[in-house]
Structures are given as C-alpha cells and as structure tokens.
C-alpha cells in the first residue's frame, strides 16, 4: 500500500530506509466512543415532544399591564358548542358554524380568514379574548388558541362565557 495514493513517492531523499506513508487509523476507540454516546443518548432521549401555549386568565393581574392603544379594539371570540362569534369592538361578524372533520377536530379555516380580515384592518392588534362556554371540550379550546397565535394574536386571554 505504500505509495498507493497515485503512486507518489513522497519519502525523503536521504537515508536508505523508506518508511511507509500510509497510516491506519485505529477505529476501535472510535467505535467504543460511538457506542457509549449512542447508549447515553438513547437512555436520555425524550421521545414525546411537548410544548406549551401561554394564556392569561381574563380579569387576572396580567390584564392591568396592557396599555391602552388607540389602534386596537377589544377583540372577543365567543366559543360555543355550535358556532363561533367574533366581535371586534362594537361590530360583530356573522357566526361561524362549528364544522368537524372525520377525526372530530374543529375546522378553523373560516376563523383564520376572519382573523386575517381583522388583522388587515387593525395591524397592531395582538390581543384576543376567548369567551368559552362550559361545555366546550379542551381540545377545541386549545386548537382555537393555537389558531389565534398562528394568525398573529399572541396575547390570548381565556374567560368564561357570560350567561
């Protein structure tokens, strides 16, 4: 194998002995290290990816930190069993009927369009209050919060629906 890399003879000119240029890397410690690393990573791996959605309880202390902004309006979404009603200030939109897909998940395409419409008129709007009825499943609430955050309304407050 000496001089195997293109047959180049790079050995020094002096001296009679030619030392082979090829050196073999000792792979055994490398494989040992790999095996230990893999064992450690598999043992400490967290396979479930869990995240969090931060919300504030409407009426709680966090509300007092909000500053009055003339370019925003109180945006409220009433979440019921059968429909979603969005209200921006004094104007209210048509109710969005609750439609579910084959898996039973709530379809939020219309709500997304409605929020985008509001955000187009009020670009500084970042807060929304979700007034939720008691019978609404937690899954629906989380999906709506997720949709609101994804649509550019990161300050989500959750409140109970009146009446």
């Amino acid at each position: 194998m000496a001089g195997g890399m293109g047959g180049a003879d790079l050995s020094g000119s002096g001296g009679g002995k030619r030392k082979p240029l090829d050196t073999q890397i000792n792979l055994v410690p490398f494989i040992d290290l790999m095996a230990v690393t893999i064992s450690f990573l598999i043992m400490t791996a967290v396979w479930t990816q869990i995240g969090r959605l931060q919300v504030s309880n409407s009426g709680g202390p966090s509300d007092s930190q909000d500053t009055e902004n003339e370019k925003t309006v109180p945006l409220t979404l009433l979440i019921g069993d059968k429909d979603l009603r969005l209200t921006a200030g004094t104007s209210s939109f048509d109710p969005i009927p609750v439609v579910r897909d084959s898996k039973g998940h709530i379809d939020l395409t219309k709500l997304e369009m409605r929020i985008k419409e509001v955000r187009g008129q009020l670009p500084d709007q970042v807060a929304i209050t979700l007034q939720t009825e008691d019978s609404v499943p937690y899954d629906d609430l989380v999906r709506i919060i997720d949709q609101c955050i994804g649509s550019g309304l990161p300050n989500v407050s959750v409140a109970a629906a009146m009446g």
Binding site: I50, G51, S62
Partner: peptide
C-alpha cells in the same frame, strides 16, 4: 381560576407539538 387565586398567573396549557 384557582391557579390565579393562588398566585399562579402565568398559565400554560401543555400540548403535544
């Protein structure tokens, strides 16, 4: 409501990513 009353105002809902 109970969390807020007890002083835990920053509420996070745990979800699967």
């Amino acid at each position: 409501y109970t969390c807020t009353t007890a002083g835990y105002n920053n509420i996070n809902f745990a979800t699967m990513t």
